[in-house]
């Protein structure tokens, strides 16, 4: 069954993007279709789980057909069907898992269950081959983790957030600043025009690679309350710049310390927050004089997509790590 240039049909529906991709040999994108629900959720100021599941259901068949068509392959040429098992919203995940099971069963193809974060890390394999040991910083709405990999498919979490994820802090601060959803890119944009004048706290958490963003979020919100109470004007640019500065300083510094301590060859930045302009710049600057290769995926592979799921699935395909038809979505799936 195993072959080297396998073609994988990959499905990702863990949050608000309905995505299907066709990937060859783990690093060649034949097609990568993403139907976003961004506009729908903008109206609600965030992702509404029930709405997300319904839209996934409406979109999944169409997106799948389009992905196959763009890749110019038929189901007969597909060697395996891969899907995100978790973590994510259970109702949303289920749509993808059930679609994958149905199509794998109908066409008698092996099924591969992929961890969403493994996918974000493997998004970088479209750029360059992995060189172990490597360190990955995963930053998104639900994650802030430092993961060491000694080989394909092995993940050692050496640091994680003790409270809120970085992206979550972004969303909450954006909400407090009354910025439209999604808040991350908005804050990044404002921050480019402001300066770090508020000097918000930095949570260093001595002797640990863990993160904490809850205190910072509270500090920003308290500052906004104070300004509003005193009827003072809120300089959104400076608030955004000060907040972002605090997040970035900690992310970059801790990543650098971990990368040095674990003597890694590569640093991979992954997850939705890796689209942040300042994070990309600061990270590249910090590692400029080091021998560690920094890899940050192109923007379209930073946000949720199915190409990355196909890339991670390729490794599992070669390790013969298959799922059977009893596969279920697992919203709290551990790496």
């Amino acid at each position: 069954m195993k072959k080297t240039n396998e073609i994988i049909l990959a499905i990702e529906t863990s949050c608000d993007e309905t995505a299907v991709a066709v990937i060859q040999g783990g690093n060649k994108i034949l097609s990568n279709v993403v139907a976003t629900q961004m506009e729908i959720h903008q109206k609600f100021g965030g992702v509404v789980p029930e709405v997300a599941s319904r839209h996934h259901m409406e979109q999944i068949t169409l997106v799948m057909e389009q992905a196959l068509e763009e890749a110019k392959v038929t189901m007969e040429q597909i060697d395996a069907v891969a899907v995100t098992k978790g973590p994510g919203l259970v109702g949303a995940l289920l749509v993808g898992v059930n679609a994958a099971k149905a199509i794998a069963f109908a066409h008698q193809k092996p099924l591969i269950a992929v961890h969403h974060i493994a996918g974000h890390i493997y998004a970088n394999r479209f750029q360059a081959e992995f060189d172990f040991p490597l360190l990955s910083l995963v930053v998104s709405g639900g994650h802030s983790e430092l993961i060491v990999m000694d080989e394909h498919g092995s993940y050692d979490i050496i640091g994680e957030t003790r409270d809120d994820a970085a992206g979550e802090a972004y969303d909450k601060v954006a909400k407090a600043l009354k910025l439209p959803y999604p808040g991350g890119p908005q804050i990044d944009r404002l921050a480019q025009q402001g300066e770090d004048t508020y000097n918000f706290p930095r949570a260093w958490l001595q002797d640990s690679y863990d993160f904490s963003f809850s205190g910072l979020k509270t500090a920003v919100i308290n500052q906004l309350h104070k300004l509003r109470q005193k009827d003072q004007t809120i300089d959104q640019e400076n608030i955004a710049a000060s907040f972002q500065s605090s997040v970035m300083e900690v992310l970059v510094e801790k990543t650098y310390q971990a990368a040095t301590a674990y003597e890694v060859k590569q640093l991979i930045v992954a997850g939705g927050v890796s689209a942040n302009k300042e994070l990309r710049e600061r990270m590249e600057e910090k590692f400029k004089d080091s021998s560690i290769q920094v890899m940050i995926p192109p923007l379209y592979l930073c946000t949720d997509n199915a190409a990355m799921i196909g890339a991670a699935a390729s490794i599992q395909y070669h390790q013969e790590d298959f799922a059977d038809l009893s596969l279920n979505a697992n919203p709290g799936f551990m790496l």
């Binding site: 789980p49 994510g88 639900g142 957030t161």
Partner: peptide, 13 residues
């Protein structure tokens, strides 16, 4: 394990 915010996934076990 570290217990952190379940806001994004709604449930953590």
């Amino acid at each position: 394990r570290t217990v952190n915010s379940p806001t994004y996934t709604i449930i953590k076990e």
